[in-house]
Design a binder for these strands. Structure first.
Ligand SMILES: NC(=O)c1ccc[n+]([C@@H]2O[C@H](COP(=O)([O-])OP(=O)(O)OC[C@H]3O[C@@H](n4cnc5c(N)ncnc54)[C@H](O)[C@@H]3O)[C@@H](O)[C@H]2O)c1
Ligand SMILES: NC(=O)c1ccc[n+]([C@@H]2O[C@H](COP(=O)([O-])OP(=O)(O)OC[C@H]3O[C@@H](n4cnc5c(N)ncnc54)[C@H](O)[C@@H]3O)[C@@H](O)[C@H]2O)c1
Lengths: 254, 254
DNA sequence: ATGTCTTTGTGAACGCGTGCACAAAGATGG
DNA sequence: CCATCTTTGTGCACGCGTTCACAAAGACAT
């Protein structure tokens, strides 16, 4: 027993449900677009459509932030942009370190959407000595040895891990020990962190597998009821499949 | 009204809850690692620890697949790997197209974890004529004009969008029209798709904003400990802060 | 003012997901 | 064959999240 893992207090963030927090950036994005078009106000219905959610859900989400709407009119775009930005902590500047400047790390470093919302790349860090000093996206890569100093000097509290899976936990431990309390993990590993440290993961492989599951399901349903073809597509042929194997436990991927 | 968007039947995937499906890849990864170490069996407790979940949850998840465990012993690793792989549709080969071979698209193309579980990069597609023919990760980039033909020829049903946000919906429409029914979207936009098409999104910016929210909350609670400081403002020191800039409500991001 | 019309904010019901706790199943040893 | 011990599989309760549906709030016209 005693998995030694984090207990999720989950939803108790001083009132605002976690699910709502996860949608606020979505609303903010839609609102920012409206703001750029100088649209003064939006109704919950319009904004919900733009954000791809149910309008009742959106209204309830906003109700957690306060009563910022005007009945019969809608929400003031600028005001709402400010309120959400403030709630998300985007009115301040968040220095971020990226660890592991390989294919993905470099892409992240080059990503413009980073800086656009108050996230500043404070440093790029890699263990490879040959990369030290080499500029990526205009920022010189620094060696892992400097990690603690950088985090301390810049007051970095958010770290991005883009190292191979094998190094991720180790890197994570160092980040946490140095003072980082929020981690965005791209490596396909479960990270162990002490209480109080937030970890979010982005896992391409998992996303694809979930898609594959549904894809297979669609194909299966279609085959099942040939009388009623579900609106999907009615695929002419299947992905690849029907190969000579198909039942052999050809599992054991790398 | 009539947002014109998809109705999510969500959880009704012939018994298996969506939340369970999302965890299966996690279990599979842990099991694969055990398999490589030639571990014959695992208990739900051990496997749950490795996957970072509650053991009861794991057992319940597996119960949706059938009764594959042995009481008093645990689960047979190889057998479970096979069962989960089959359930996820990984015993077959899924050709995938990546559209938008920029920083991110190239990183994805180079990503080894792609092929490792039955996902095969069928084609790399970009609108830039200058990229046509140029090999990325050993695969020549093809022009967008070829998109429909490629999808049709290879029976591609999964597409990855890594274009700028402005082009994403357009690309999505073409993919769907050509027969793709599952999309993994990296562009920061809400995609509109017809019923029967699955979309999953990976949004770096949203993840960071969620982290920032919690980070701000932590800082607020910490401050509130001594006096009562309204958690929003009045920070003593913040991540970076105290810099020459850093206090201007630099809201209104791009 | 008064009435009408639009849109918010939310009470309430429902369904999904989670985790506890335990009975049953089976292994293992004597 | 029986006793004991381990671990699964699941019934059950609870809480979160979603959605409906509507009263109240306010804009706007007359
Ligand atoms: N490339 C992708 O599209 C992609 C997609 C999803 C997930 N991932 C994951 O992201 C991670 C990085 O992928 P990649 O393709 O960029 O790999 P990569 O091999 O190109 O880059 C890894 C980098 O990490 C550095 N590194 C290794 N150990 C380190 C350590 N201890 N400290 C600091 N730096 C260290 C290496 O020097 C290298 O530069 C992997 O875990 C991969 O599974 C990548
Ligand atoms: N780079 C990152 O780390 C990162 C992170 C998160 C999200 N994103 C998002 O991923 C997307 C790509 O990011 P990037 O950094 O690779 O951008 P990029 O500009 O480097 O690459 C975009 C590529 O898409 C191609 N393209 C443009 N329009 C196209 C079309 N209609 N059809 C096909 N190809 C087209 C361009 O030619 C270019 O090669 C963006 O939406 C970005 O917001 C990137």
């Amino acid at each position: 027993m005693a998995t030694g893992r984090t207990h999720r207090p989950a939803t108790r963030s001083r009132g605002i449900p976690e699910a709502t927090v996860a949608r606020l950036p979505l609303y903010l994005r839609a609102l920012t677009a409206l703001s750029e078009r100088s649209v003064p106000t939006v109704s919950s219905e319009e904004l919900a459509a733009a954000a791809g959610v149910n309008s009742a859900k959106l209204r309830k989400d906003f109700s957690y932030l306060g009563s910022y709407g005007t009945r019969g009119v809608g929400y003031d775009v600028e005001y709402l942009v400010y309120q959400i930005s403030r709630e998300l902590g985007l009115t301040q500047d968040w220095p971020v370190v990226i660890v592991g400047i390989g294919n993905l790390g470099a892409a992240l470093a080059n990503y413009g959407g980073f800086a656009s919302r108050g996230f500043r790349v404070a440093a790029l860090i890699d263990a490879d000595p040959q990369m030290a000093g080499k500029p990526v996206a205009g920022i010189p890569v620094q060696h892992t040895d400097e990690l603690e100093k950088i985090i301390d000097d810049d007051g970095v509290s958010i770290g991005v891990i883009a190292t191979p899976a094998g190094a991720a936990q180790q890197v994570c431990d160092r980040l946490v020990a140095a003072g980082v309390t929020s981690i965005l993990n791209f490596a396909p590993t479960v990270l162990n962190v002490p209480e109080g440290v937030d970890v979010r993961k982005v896992d391409l492989s998992i996303e694809l597998q979930i898609l594959a599951f549904h894809e297979q399901r669609k194909a299966g349903e279609e085959a099942a009821a040939d009388g009623v073809v579900p609106p999907a597509v009615a695929r002419k042929q299947r992905p690849t499949d029907q190969g000579p194997d198909g039942d052999v436990p050809a599992v054991m991927p790398a």
